[in-house]
Amino acid sequence: MTVSNDIDTAYGVMIYVEKGEQITLELFTEGRRLAEQLSQPLSALFVGKNPPLKDAQLYGVDSLHHIPATDEEERDYSETSKSVARVLQRLSPSIFLMGATKKGRVLAPLVAARLLAGITADCTEFSLDEKNNLIQIRPALGGNIMAHIVSTETRPQCATVRPGTFKAVFAGKPTKTEIIIEKEHITMSETVTKIDEIEKSTSENDTQIELSRVVVAIGAGIKSEAEIGEIRKFATEIGAEIASSRELVEKGLMPHGRQVGQSGKTIAPDLYIAIGISGAIQHLVGMRDSEFIIAINSDKDAPIHKESDISIVGVWQEVLSELLPIIKERLSK
């Protein structure tokens, strides 16, 4: 274990780069905003082969630090975190941000713990206090509250950010990004031996519901495979992806890759149709930025009705069969 950096000397904003991921560009943009506000530089840290220099230039990154690694090396989270922690200790950034991706949610706390630094998961907003501490805002208690969190005594201030929270915007003009190769290597541990790959995730699980313009989401009001089949047919007819609240995933009726909410994905399609979803806040945080929300629920007191543009109290089978042609027509325009 290493030790946290000195508060007085920590300087600059650093972004961990996941190549090919939109979240990296989103973090460059938000990092640039914070760096400008602090009048400090924006840097990036990349582990792997071929650092994405062009993105760094377009998004205003001043320096791009590169830890060369093979794909295999880079996949070992525990070992990667050791190298990253050493680099962070040397460079001593004040703020270190990673995407709250499958990888980031593991690597970030590994790195932070090695530096004994504070870390906040799944942030949705940042600001700075009068002493330039980073105020990290995140949903908690199943999304029922937003917590404002600071780490005043440790550096770097580490946080992960939910993909889709910030918009990626180019810097005004391309930056002359300096590439710096870090004298680090990742020691492959002999702990893990791969045996084989199981079933490629099916298209069912693999889908990117966050890319779909129209989403039909189902919740605890849907009771069986047969009912899901009916709704899937409806979704296909109107060209929508099907998503789910937590209950059906826990029951094993829907794959986790389609879960929307605090512990699933955050999405904002043009049209979100919620069927049999009560609207616990833990679900609402994952969909409330949708452009237009239609809710169908037989329970008139379900909270989802308040979070919708149009809500219908009724039996979903009856409602869907009548709305199908109307929505289809409307979407085809």
Binding site: A117, G118, H148, K300, K306, E307, D309, G314
Partner: peptide, 24 residues
């Protein structure tokens, strides 16, 4: 002994409040 500190809690207010229709 905790490096992170919660300095403020906000309740999440639902805002959309569209129209509710009874299918019956």
């Amino acid at each position: 002994g905790s490096p992170t500190r919660v300095i403020k809690i906000e309740n999440v207010v639902t805002t959309r409040g569209g129209k509710t229709f009874h299918w019956e």
